[in-house]
Design a binder for these strands. Structure first.
Lengths: 185, 185
DNA sequence: TCCTGTTATGCACCTCGTTGCATAGCAACG
DNA sequence: CGTTGCTATGCAACGAGGTGCATAACAGGA
């Protein structure tokens, strides 16, 4: 379990409300750790009860008030402990791979549209990453305390970019393979 | 949910017992869809109740008897239906990415060992894939009804290989970035 | 004979994640 | 004034998945 830890990292980068966290989990953090707002609210409650985060009521004008969470000392310690203990490789779930192998027992050509849909999704996400990279990491920045944070965010983003490029190339490979059956290979 | 479907594909490729399925989920299928034996037995029960699979008691000598499962017509139909409906992109969980971003608020250098551990795991898995590819897909095979199945298995394996290579390259990128802080960047 | 290891199946429990729903403040539009 | 839409928070219920444990047949070695 690491949703707590993902939230801690996000709150350390910038304190915010449950709603704001939920929106970050739709972009940024969410590209390598998904969570819905219900999940986030529930975990925030627990983290608050455990003293991992502090809460501050923030009155707002023009919109409902919010609760702003920030990381407390015990939360920081918990994150540090997690960082220092080994994490086992994540369990993988690639349903498209299951579908590709399953297509052998159905109509392989029928999968082409689905693969193209996924390819489009990965192309879109890659473009989105590249825009973000150009926006946030291309202009050189003065060295400072934020420099480490910035470089680590950048290397994670580069991982996302590499992943999307790999997926697009693989999906092309899949499409070529599926097309091979089509044309009476 | 697609564990049912992963099991259907595996049983179509070759009928077998829950125990055998569990072992396949430790290799092969398991590289892109994980499941424990408890999960598999539980789901097999449900699939049997739903008429998706047939069961046959197989007496064995030298070891306990087993139940051999094979796909029934309704199971094949269920798989076909799933193949024809769009699947949304899988939710991702990359705890290492969370750790890398979190390292900015702790000691970045302390993460080096962890990243190296993961790099080693991916190197091992890549080697394993390449051995499997050389064993199963290098010798040309006469065209036949098994040809489609074989080619689709191969393209999925190529995806695994591409994934491991991408990860190794990215982990090297991470290590170089972490080393940059070390040497008083 | 006992112990260990492998094959083989399964239950009980608990947590995590998802789905669906509910509430409420406030803005903008028709 | 009602509707729609966004911000903001939350509950209830369910199902999937993981952990721990139990059972049993059989082989081989100490």
């Amino acid at each position: 379990m690491a949703l707590e830890h993902a939230i801690l990292v996000s709150l350390l980068e910038k304190p915010g409300s449950g709603y704001e966290l939920a929106r970050r989990f739709e972009r940024s953090i969410g590209y390598f750790w998904t969570a819905t707002h219900q999940q986030i609210y529930r975990v925030l409650k627990r983290m608050q009860a455990d003293g991992w985060v502090d809460v501050r009521d923030v009155p707002q004008s023009g919109r409902p008030d919010k609760k702003e969470y920030s990381v407390a000392r015990p939360g920081r310690d918990a994150l540090s402990a997690w960082l220092h203990e080994p994490t086992e490789p994540e369990s993988v779930r690639h349903d498209l791979a299951v579908k590709v192998r399953g297509a052998a027992f159905d109509d392989p050509a029928a999968l082409i549209g689905e693969v193209e849909r996924h390819r489009q999704a990965h192309t879109d996400r890659l473009a989105h990453y590249l825009v973000g990279e150009a926006r946030d990491f291309k202009e050189p920045q003065a060295d400072g305390p934020l420099d480490t944070e910035r470089e680590l965010q950048h290397v994670v983003l580069r991982g996302g970019i590499a992943y999307e490029r790999m997926m697009i190339a693989w999906l092309d490979d899949v499409l070529a393979t599926l097309a091979g059956f089509d044309t009476g290979h």
